[in-house]
Each structure stands twice: as C-alpha cells, then as structure tokens.
Amino acid sequence: MEVSRIISEIDAQISKLQQARALLAGTTAAAGRTGPGRPKGSKNAAATAPATKTARKRKLSPEGRKRIADAMKKRWAERRKQSSKG
C-alpha cells in the first residue's frame, strides 16, 4: 500500500469516529460539515452587509387606491372588448 492511500483511509476513519462521537454527545452531525457561503464570524462579513435603515411601509391614500382601481377596471373593459371582437 502506498502512503497516500493509507493517509486517506485514516482520514476516513477519523471522520467516521467524529460523526459517531457527535451523535453520542447529542450534537448534530451536520455541525461538522461546512456548506456553501461565508463561515460565521468571518472578518469581512460586516463590511459586505451594509447597515440599512428599517424600510418604512408605504401607505396608499384612499384616493390613490380608487384611482388605481378605476384604471384597472378601464383596462379590463378594453380587454373584454378586444376579446369579444377577435
């Protein structure tokens, strides 16, 4: 057996033992694996996520709501006219 194969088998055994230890200790096995994305606590995480102010919810006035509703009704009426012709 060559040395690189022995090392890879030892690493596989270590991984299996760590998973078994995590299960026995009550922690999840997924905690040992890393997924895509930046790891927690990385130094540049705060720099990439700019501090944003909480966005205020826009409110539509009753007049504005009525204006939009009237425009939509007009649009639907035109559609109905075109579909009945064609």
Rank of each mutant, 00 (worst) to 15 (best):
T54K: 09
I10N: 07
K59W: 07
G41D: 02
K81Y: 04
A20P: 00
R56Q: 10
K53V: 13
L24H: 02
R56S: 03
A51Q: 11
L17I: 09
R75C: 02
A31T: 06
R79F: 05
R65F: 06
I6T: 07
T28G: 12
R21C: 00
G32V: 01
K81T: 10
P62I: 04
K53E: 14
K40Q: 03
G35F: 08
S61V: 01
D70K: 08
L23T: 11
K74Y: 09
A69M: 04
T48P: 00
T27V: 12
N44K: 07
R58H: 12
S42K: 03
R33C: 00
K16L: 02
A47F: 03
K66E: 15
D70N: 13
R38M: 11
K85R: 14
K81P: 00
G37C: 03
R75W: 09
P50T: 05
G64Y: 04
L23D: 10
A31Q: 09
R80I: 06
N44Y: 14
L23E: 15
Q19E: 11
A29N: 02
A51H: 12
I7V: 11
G26K: 01
K16I: 08
T52E: 10
G37Y: 04
K73F: 10
K43V: 07
N44C: 03
A31F: 06
Q82I: 03
S83Q: 15
I14R: 05
A25T: 11
Q13V: 05
S84I: 08
A25N: 05
A20E: 11
S84A: 15
E9M: 09
K81R: 15
A22Y: 00
K73N: 12
A46S: 07
T48E: 13
P62S: 12
K43R: 13
S83I: 15
E78T: 07
I6M: 08
R65D: 07
G86R: 15
S83M: 14
K74C: 01
A55R: 13
R67C: 00
K74L: 13
A51P: 01
K16E: 11
S84P: 00
R38A: 10
V3R: 13
A30Q: 14
L60Y: 06
S83H: 12
K85H: 07
L17S: 11
G86E: 13
K43C: 01
R5M: 11
S84Q: 13
A12L: 07
R33K: 10
R65S: 09
A45N: 10
G86T: 13
E2G: 12
